[in-house]
Design a protein around this nucleic acid. Structure first.
Lengths: 340, 340
DNA sequence: ATTTAGCACTCGGACAGCGAGAGTGCTAAC
DNA sequence: GTTAGCACTCTCGCTGTCCGAGTGCTAAAT
């Protein structure tokens, strides 16, 4: 039931050929283009076997073969040789990262842009998230007499802000005092350790503390907020989406980015670069798409995900290399900046 | 050379009809659908005049009329009656804004989403920008021994952050002292008033001050950073873009959002809701698109822009109402939060 | 037992021709 | 100025035909 070496060879060639140019590949071009030392007839026999096994298929009787999802899967799993990204490309990418300021938002935007450009696919980057956010520092800054800006820093350097309308004028000193008090009280706590009962119920402290708790709660539960996207346009370039079929669906999906959270969960578990081909039966909208994604963020539990979305007919080897490299780069920088 | 009342009437009807369903409108359907009290032949004569004048065209000899850009322009300028948004719709929108936390990012995301959904078009929202950023407050928070988080608040509540790697361990107290010193020194200054010479060249203060200056400089010059987008998918739904022609270009343009900055400049000048039809000769990529945009942000000089991008065949009256309403709403909230 | 040559067969895509239908422009009458 | 009538034009969908590509099968060759 196993495939022979030659069959594997041929399968690989068909897929490579098809990825390179998206027309069904015929037995003839196969033997002409590659020195297999067999005749078209033999190739046809082998192709027939591969089709029977479910790795290839036929658009219609008198057409060449195109890969099935199973075919791609086999290719990615066993046939594709993992190459490290060529030095030149690594340098191009690395170079761009050097220009970025030490700020998470900028880095994510950049990552998305780099991924998109290098793979000519749509790219997504989610912000890093800790499983449990922890209080680090609070700051209250008076903007006007009765309006203050609340800045909450969570462990790991995530900064949240909110405007606060006060019921009475407060000086900066009073505000700073309140912030100082809460900083002392809440240093390092998680959301369920935020105790409100020690504060006067109607005091400003209590109100601020409630807001802090709300923000932390939101942060722990929120999904698909602040995802960075880029290269949506590339999707439109791929021939398979020229005739908009489910294109709208795909773009919608990318805009919402919901599925990504789900996939993220798994990527978190498994680690390494994940390849999801044709929605893998679970995401109908991604029927003709593949997703290559990876977690970034070192050994610790705080991290995010990033990846690209393209047609199933995607240069997997290259995409995987790029995704892996960018993920590593982001991980390194995060470590450098935040220490995890 | 002026149009007669009846011609204006007919032009309006043709455009309305065409907007409602995108097939060339024929003389016959015109007289059948609307009680003009004229025969198809008369209508044809009038249509011929309108075509001669450049308000309408013909895809081919035996087809009905479709509006030209000039036609749309005339429509928007003189024929379309400006209606206020129906109460129900206003409530729907307003309701959504009540759920938002008092935070700029969230509000912009929400605005984009609301605009997109209500107009079924792509929507863009730029962040508010002051012509000159002013220093408000600085905070240095120790993350680890040799890593600190720099948080800079600009006048108006814009928060910038950056990670700082220190050359030696500093305690939180030392950092706070430095921040306090700079806060005292730089209260309310613009970027060109940031003086570095009063600080020891090699001190951490000086380094922080330089970073502050850099951030402010960047903020004053940066363009099209942090634009929020939504509803890109709607573009794909419009029949005129079904057959991707310059679709790619349009999507690209939206992703980069560059043109928006340019348009913003003008919108800033003129005020009110701007309508740019078919790129108006200046943006080729927007050939079949129209943009409805407005400035938000009260009388003061700090504000941003928001708008929607759809096909030239766009329900202008509605789009304009929605854009105006959302702009007002954002302006109000900003005033409430930040006082301008 | 595998490989190969040969050949019939099938299917899609391009092309041309055709007819129907829609809608105009023109002319002449109202 | 308006309208009826009519010829004319152009698109669109349908049909039939042809061509070429590529397969699957069979029988011969290695």
């Amino acid at each position: 039931m196993e495939l022979t070496e030659r069959q594997r060879m041929i399968l690989g060639l068909v897929i490579r050929e098809y990825i390179q140019n998206p027309v069904p590949v015929a037995s003839k071009v196969l033997v002409e283009k590659y020195p297999l030392g067999i005749s078209p007839a033999t190739a046809r026999n082998e192709l027939a076997v591969l089709e029977e096994r479910g790795y290839l298929t036929h658009p219609h009787t008198s057409a060449g073969r195109i890969p099935t999802e199973k075919g791609y899967r086999y290719f990615v799993e066993y046939l594709m040789q993992q190459v490290e990204l060529p030095l030149e490309e690594r340098l191009t990418i690395r170079h761009q990262f050097y220009q970025v300021h030490a700020e998470m938002d900028q880095m994510m935007r950049l990552s998305a842009s780099v991924l998109a450009r290098q793979t000519r696919s749509a790219a997504l980057v989610t912000p890093p998230r800790a499983p449990q956010s922890r209080y680090k520092h609070l700051e209250l800054i008076s903007l006007r007499e009765t309006v203050a800006l609340l800045i909450l820093v969570l462990q790991g350097g995530l900064v949240k802000q909110q405007v606060l309308t006060l019921d009475a004028p407060y000086t900066q000193e009073t505000l700073s005092a309140i912030a100082g008090k809460l900083n002392h009280l809440y240093a390092g706590v998680t959301v369920d350790q935020v105790r409100l009962d020690v504060l006067g119920a109607e005091s400003l402290e209590a109100r601020v503390a409630r807001i802090v708790r709300d923000i932390m709660t939101q942060e722990d539960h929120q999904t698909s907020q602040g995802i960075y996207r880029d290269g949506l346009g590339y999707i439109l370039e791929t021939p398979e989406f020229r005739e908009a079929r489910s294109l709208r669906q795909v773009v919608d999906l990318l805009e919402r980015g919901m599925f990504f959270e789900e996939m993220l969960a798994e990527a978190m578990e498994r680690g390494g670069v994940q390849v999801i081909i044709g929605g893998e039966g679970r995401w109908d909208e991604l029927a003709d798409c593949s997703v290559v994604m990876a977690r970034y963020g070192g050994e610790s539990r705080v991290g995010g995900a990033l990846g690209v979305v393209g047609p199933t007919r995607m240069p997997y080897a290259h995409a995987i290399s790029v995704v892996r490299y960018v993920a590593e780069l982001m991980g390194d920088l995060m470590y450098e900046w935040y220490g995890y």
